[in-house]
Design a protein around this nucleic acid. Sequence first.
RNA 1: CGGGAAGUGGCGCAGUUUGGCAGCGCGCUGCGUUCGGGACGCAGAGGUCGGGGGUUCAAAUCCCCCCUUCCCGACCA
Length: 470
Amino acid sequence: MAKAPILTPQSEDFPRWYQDLIQKAELAENGPVRGTMVIRPYGYAIWERMQAEMDARIKAAGARNAYFPLFIPEEFLRREAEHVEGFSPELAVVTHAGGRELEEPVVVRPTSETIINHYFAKWIQSHRDLPMLINQWANVVRWELRPRIFLRTTEFLWQEGHTCHRTAIEAHEYATRILHDTYEDFMVRVLAMPVVVGRKTAAERFAGAINTMTCEAQMRDLKALQMGTSHELGQNFSVAFGTSFQDTDGAERQPWQTSWGTSTRMMGGVIMSHGDDRGLRLPPNLAPIQVVVMAIRDDAAVIEEVGRIHGELLSAGVRAEVDVRTDVSFGRRAVDWELKGVPIRLELGPRDLASGEVTLARRDSGDKSPVSLAGVAATVVSLLAEIQEGLHAEALERRESTTVDVATVPEAVEAAAVGWARIPWADLGAEGESVLAESGVTVRCLISADGGVPESDDEEGAIAVVGRAY
RNA sequence: CGGGAAGUGGCGCAGUUUGGCAGCGCGCUGCGUUCGGGACGCAGAGGUCGGGGGUUCAAAUCCCCCCUUCCCGACCA
C-alpha cells in the first residue's frame, strides 16, 4: 500500500510543496509578527555555509567587513530623493522609545547606503583613501505586504557591500567584478545554480542607482528569482551626503560608488532550484552535511565501522556525520536525510560488513549501490564533485529547454506563461515592458548580443530576458 | 493594500449548517518486540477550540471587532 506522500508533490501545488519542505526539513518557520521568520538550526547551518563562501569571495575582492547601526535618522533617508521615494512604502519607523515620543523618528534600516555615506563623508578626504571597500553582514527590514518565507520577508539577513572609487570607470569595473567574481561564481560553483547575468531596465533599477546589474535564476516551476544585485550609484549618494576627496590635481571631487547585496532569499532559490518531491537536494559544495554514515543495526562491529568510515571522511575533508540512532527505524531516518537534502548517504549493516562493502545512496538520482569499503573516502570525494556538477547541469538544461526566442510582445507573453523568453530589447522597449507587466511578466534583465552585460540602457543588439518572477 | 479561503493538542484534520461531555490520524512519553525504505503491541501525556467583546441557562458552533496564515492581484533582495 502506497503511503501518503511526504510532501505535497510539486506538480500538484508548488507553493505548498515549498512550504511543506521548509517545515519538514526543519529549515525555518514563521515568526509571530507577520513577515518575520525563525531560521532553525539546520536552515541556519546552510546560511552559514553561504556566508562562509560569500565572505571569502568578498574579501578576495578586497572589501573588509564592518558594522553600522540598525537605526537610521529618518532625515538621512530623505537626502537622496529617489532613494526615499523608493523605500518609503516599506519603512518601519520608530516613533516611540524610552517611554516617550521621539523628537526625531528613526527608521529601521531597509538598506544602509545613507548611514554608511554619513561615515564615508567623515572617513574620506584624499584620493589616497580610495577605493574604500566596505561590506557588512546584517539584518534589514522592509515592511512586506505579501511575505513568503525566505523569498520575501519583512526582516531578512544579508550582506551589503558599499564602495567608493576615484573614477566612474573604477566603480563600474568594481560593480561588475562583484557581479561576476563574487556573485555569479558563488551561485554557479557553490549553489550549482546557473544564473543569467545582466542589466536591469530603468523600471527595475534600485532606488538611487544609475545602473543595477543582476543574477537571475530559474526555479523548478520556471519562475525567475533575483538572486543578487550589484549597483552603480554614480555620485548620487556622495553628493547628497557631501562625501568628497581631493584628487591628484588638487580638485575636490565626489567619489563614484557601488553597492551590492545577496540575502537569505538565496535559501529559497536553492530549495526551488534543486528540491524534488522527496525534499531538498543540496549541492555538495553548499551542504553543511555532505555525507551521513548510517548504522542500520545496533551491532557493535557495525557501529565501530561506521565510526571508522566517519573518521576517514573527516580526514579527507568531507563534512560528514554519523547516524547511529538504531532505535529509530531505518526508513524513518532515510526519509529524514532525504528531506534535508544530504547529498550522499552511506548505509552500513552486517551484510555490507560481511562483504567488505557499504551501500551508497545518492540524493540527486536516488540511486543506490554497494561500494568497496577500501578507499570509500576517495569514492565519496569524487562522487560529491560529480553530484555538484550534475545538479548544475540539470538546472542549466531545464533553463535552456524552457527559454525560447521570440520577436513580438504577444509571443513573449505566451512564452512567459510557461517559461522564459528572449526578445530583442529594440522590439520590446519600455512600452512593451508595461504591456508584459499587465500579464504578470517582467523583464528580468537585459543581456548583450554576445551574452555579456550591456554597458548602457539602450545598447545596440541588447536582448531582454523575460518571465514571471518571485 | 484589494479579492478569495482558512485558524480546533506539536503537525494534518472532523465537529460549526441545526448551540448541549472536545474528537480522529500522525507525532510525543513509558515498557516490550522490531530494525536493509515512513515498524508493531500495550499503557499514557497533551487543547482556556487564534485574541477580545457580545447574545444565551449553556458558545468551537450565533453576532461584532481585531490578529495570523495560505492563494490571486498592485510594490520589493
